[in-house]
Structure formats: C-alpha cells, structure tokens
Computed example of a mutant assay.
Amino acid sequence: MSKNPNQEIPKWKQDFPLEQKEATHVSRREFAKFLTLLSGALAVGSTAIVVKSLAFPDQPLVGEHPICLESDVPLGESYMFEIEGSKTIPYLLINLGEGEWRAFEQKCTHLSCAVKYRHDLGQIECPCHKGYFNPRTGDVIQGPPPRPLPQLEVVLRDGMVLVKAQQV
C-alpha cells in the first residue's frame, strides 16, 4: 500500500504514532513542564515538613512511664514496647539478670533497622548489616553503626519496670 501525498493524516495517527521513534519523542517544552511540576512538588513537600516541625515540635520524654511487670521479662530475654503519648519510637527492654535492666531505642543508628537482643551472643544485633551493640552501655561493638543506641533509664519499683529519659 503506497501513501498518497495528497491524503491527510488522520488525527488519531498524529496523536498515537505507530513508529517507535515518534512514540518516544519528548519535546523540550514537555520536559521543561515535567521538571517544573516536579520541582514545585518537591518545594511544597519540603515546606510542609518544615511547617510541621515548627508547628508541632517533638515533646521530650518527661517523667516515669510504666512498661511491664518484672516477671513479664524472663532472665536474658527482651521486651519490645512504645511509650504512650510520645512519638512512635519502638524501644527494647532487656533483663540482664541480678536486677540489671537496660532500655534502648530499637532503631539502629546506621539505617534505622530494628535491632534485637541476642542472649546467645550477649549482644544487641542489627540484622540488616550485622552491626552489634553492647547491651549494658549501647556502645557499638562491631559494624557500620556510627553512634551508640540512645538509652532510657530503667527504674524498678514494687515489681514494676518503669523507664524515664536518661539524664545528660
């Protein structure tokens, strides 16, 4: 079938070209429009984050917060918890034995992966990149984490385990 130069190309063929070269062509104007919309969306998102942080600042952890009974966490075991009313940070409570308890943020300081206490190793492990922390101090033992785990002070009172912000 030969093309007749006098025939007009139908509108649908102009809108939906059949040749691959024409179908993937993006004009400079379309590309500039895309970049403008993308830049605008990023600016709006960044502004929203700044406004949220200024309008609703994080409240510091104040006072003591009951977590569980001492009998709920066996020797050498850990217990995951969140503190009601605070920002939703998961914490890890560890019973090291002989009245020695520790509580840490459960997010690794490397890439915020969830850490877990490994009683068999006697360490807190980040399974994502094999980082290890000291369960008594939260200090980094091995791996990529750059900082120790943030720690809460643990208080034992009348068989209850309570936590409060670590005094700096």
Rank of each mutant, 00 (worst) to 15 (best):
E125C: 01
I94K: 12
G122E: 05
L93V: 02
Y117T: 10
Y117P: 07
G99D: 09
A114F: 14
C126Q: 09
Y132Q: 07
T109A: 02
L96F: 10
Q123A: 13
F133C: 07
C128G: 03
K116A: 14
L121W: 13
R102L: 03
A103W: 00
E105A: 14
Y132P: 01
H119W: 10
I124A: 07
C128R: 05
L111A: 15
K130M: 08
E105H: 15
D120W: 03
H129Y: 03
Y132R: 06
A114N: 08
H129N: 13
D120G: 04
A103P: 07
A114H: 09
E105N: 15
C108F: 03
C128N: 02
R118H: 14
Y117I: 04
R102I: 01
A114C: 11
F133I: 02
G99P: 04
K107R: 13
C108L: 08
I124F: 04
F133L: 06
N95M: 10
G131K: 02
E100W: 12
L93N: 00
G122Y: 07
I124S: 07
E98L: 14
V115S: 03
H119T: 09
C113K: 10
C126G: 11
F133K: 08
E98R: 11
P127H: 09
L93T: 01
G122I: 02
W101Q: 03
A103Y: 08
W101K: 01
G99E: 12
H119C: 04
R118Q: 11
N134K: 05
A103I: 04
I124Y: 02
Q123G: 05
L111Y: 09
C128A: 11
L111T: 03
E100K: 15
W101S: 04
Y132M: 07
F104N: 09
I124K: 10
S112V: 08
H119V: 07
V115Q: 00
E98D: 15
K130S: 12
A103N: 11
C113S: 12
N95V: 10
G99I: 13
A114V: 14
I94N: 11
E98G: 11
N134C: 08
Y132C: 03
L96K: 05
T109K: 05
G97P: 11
I94M: 05
Q123K: 14
W101H: 09
I124L: 02
G122Q: 06
N134H: 02
